[in-house]
Structures are given as C-alpha cells and as structure tokens.
C-alpha cells in the first residue's frame, strides 16, 4: 500500500474535439507523471500548457482521449477514486446565495458527513482558512481571495489524503498566499499528498519536493527540485551595494584567472526555478 502512488498519469493525451469551424485541439500530449504518497508535487508551465486539463482528467471531470489516470490506484473514471481527494479548481465559485458555513456544510454532507462531526469539521476548516468572520455572509459578497480560501476549505472538508490545487494563490494577497504556502507545508507534515500548480515560482520552490515543467501539453522537465536547479560546476555570488568599479575589478580577476573559468551571467539574481522555467519552456518551442 505504501508504494501505491497518490496520483499516476500514464501516457495521457487529451484532444478537445473541434467544431466544424475550428479544428480539434491537442491540450495534453503523451503525458506521464507520478506523485508519490506524501510528497508535494508542483506542476508548472506557461498559460495554456495543459496543467488544468491534466488535473481535470485526474479528477474524472474530463475523459482522457488516450492513456489513463488513477488516484491511489483507483482509476479516475470511478467515482470511488474521489473519496480520497480534495480538489480546488482555478477561480472557484460557489452557490452565491449560501453563506460560507452553509457552503461547507453542503460539501461535507455530499461526502457523507453529518451531525457533530460535520459541524466540528466545518468550524475547523473556517478557522484554518481564516474565514470565521465571514462564515455567516453570503458567498456572493466574497472577495476573490476569500473565494479561494473557501475553495481550499471545501477541498479539505472530508479529510482527503490527496489535495489537488489549481492555482491556490491566484488572486490572494501576499500575506494570504504565504499562509497558503504554510498550510501546504503543514499538510505535508501531516502526510497529505499535494499536487499543486502555481505561477508563483518562488513559493513553489519553497514547498515542492518535486516539480514537473509542462509546455505545449508535454512534460519538458521533471525531477527533484534540488537536482533540477542545482548546476554542479557553477557558483553564484550575490553582492549587495556593489559599485560598478568593484564589478569591473571582479571581471578583470576572472579574466586573469584564465582556463575554464568564465563569467556566465551577471545582473540581478533571479529565483533559480524561474530561470529554469523560462529556459525549459523556451527550448520546447524551438523544434
């Protein structure tokens, strides 16, 4: 049981059928990935690279054109696979006439929870996501960040072993998104597997054990984060308040050193994952 992957995607291809006017669209192409139980897996890629599509197939909302997906070994096509997963779609929205608490009650009872357990769990979720004050307000009046947090609460309500989060930090303010990052770290500590997409690479770098970089529906890089972003034969220096004169001097020193040593790049430091992201996704465009 321990080595059943939380999510496995085998040679998934997803083609959206076209209409007469526009042709079919290949959103995901022969994608394989595996999320091991207990890890945080980050899926990153440019807009339209097929991240959300992949997640929807995993959740059984879309049917794969080819290939298959499963959650803890149960095929996504079976409703039973959804017992152990919580999903936060991108830009979630809920019944606007229900209050925050009623919304969580609704999702809880859909999962077969009831009575005291449901009540306690609802309150717990409201507390975790910081929505206690808004619990009695109608969802129609929620801000974007509050909706996102309600979406997270809803995904967690039935204590799933796996969380699938599609851009959990979109539209959330910096403090809020930091909080979501902390939550993800906490989930990992409690043994919950997380599959997450985000465009905030800095935060992804902080929480993810492994990342996969997608471009044009394919996986272009995948692996443990340290392995991906470490470049063995390079050294990075970050200077503060360096004068142009000092930089020239350092340059001169490097040149004087000769041999293989050369200055690869200088400028403002970027997060390494960001650099990798841009390199990897640009590469795949060329062929």
């Amino acid at each position: 049981m321990a080595d059943t992957p939380a999510v496995s995607v085998n040679h998934l291809t997803k083609v959206f059928k076209g209409t007469l006017v526009k042709g079919a669209f290949r959103a995901v192409q022969d994608l394989s990935l595996e999320v091991k139980a207990g890890e945080v897996y980050g899926l990153i890629g440019p807009n339209g690279s097929g991240k959300s599509t992949t997640m929807k197939v995993i959740l059984g909302l879309l049917k794969p054109t080819q290939g298959s997906t499963s959650i803890f070994g149960v095929p996504s096509t079976e409703v039973a696979s959804r017992h152990s997963v919580g999903f936060l779609p991108e830009n979630p929205y809920f019944y606007k006439h229900l209050t925050g608490r009623e919304t969580l009650h609704f999702y809880g009872s859909l999962c077969g929870m009831r009575g005291e357990r449901l009540k306690a769990r609802t309150d717990e979720m409201l507390a975790i996501t910081g929505l206690e004050d808004a619990a009695t307000r109608r969802v129609g009046g929620y801000s974007k960040g509050m909706l996102q947090r309600l979406g997270l609460a809803q995904a967690l309500i039935h204590e799933p072993r796996l969380l699938v989060l599609d851009e959990p930090t979109a539209g959330v303010d910096p403090a809020g998104s930091r909080k979501i990052r902390d939550l993800i770290i906490e989930f990992r500590a409690r043994g919950i597997t997380v599959l997450v997409t985000s465009h905030l690479l800095e935060q992804m770098q902080e929480v993810c054990d492994r990342v996969g970089i997608m471009a044009h529906g394919r996986m272009v890089r995948e692996g443990r984060l340290e392995d991906l972003i470490a470049v063995e034969n390079q050294t990075e220096m970050v200077l503060e308040n360096a004068s142009p004169a000092l930089l020239t001097k350092i340059n001169a020193l490097i040149q004087a050193e000769g041999g293989d040593t050369k200055l690869v790049r200088s400028g403002r430091p970027r997060t390494t994952l960001e650099r990798l992201f841009i390199e990897a996704t640009n590469e795949s465009k060329k062929p």
């Binding site: 149960v74 079976e78 959804r82 017992h83 152990s84």
Partner: peptide, 21 residues
C-alpha cells in the same frame, strides 16, 4: 504516512452507490 487522515482501503475501493441522503 502513519497519520494519514482517512482509512485508505475500505472506502476508496467500494463502489459509490446511489444515496438518497
């Protein structure tokens, strides 16, 4: 994985039946 929240096997593998509730 010892403190994984839900009991893994039992409910995930049974088919989800129609539920009036």
């Amino acid at each position: 994985m010892s403190d994984a929240p839900t009991s893994p096997n039992t409910e995930a593998q049974t088919r989800v039946r129609f539920s009036p509730r």
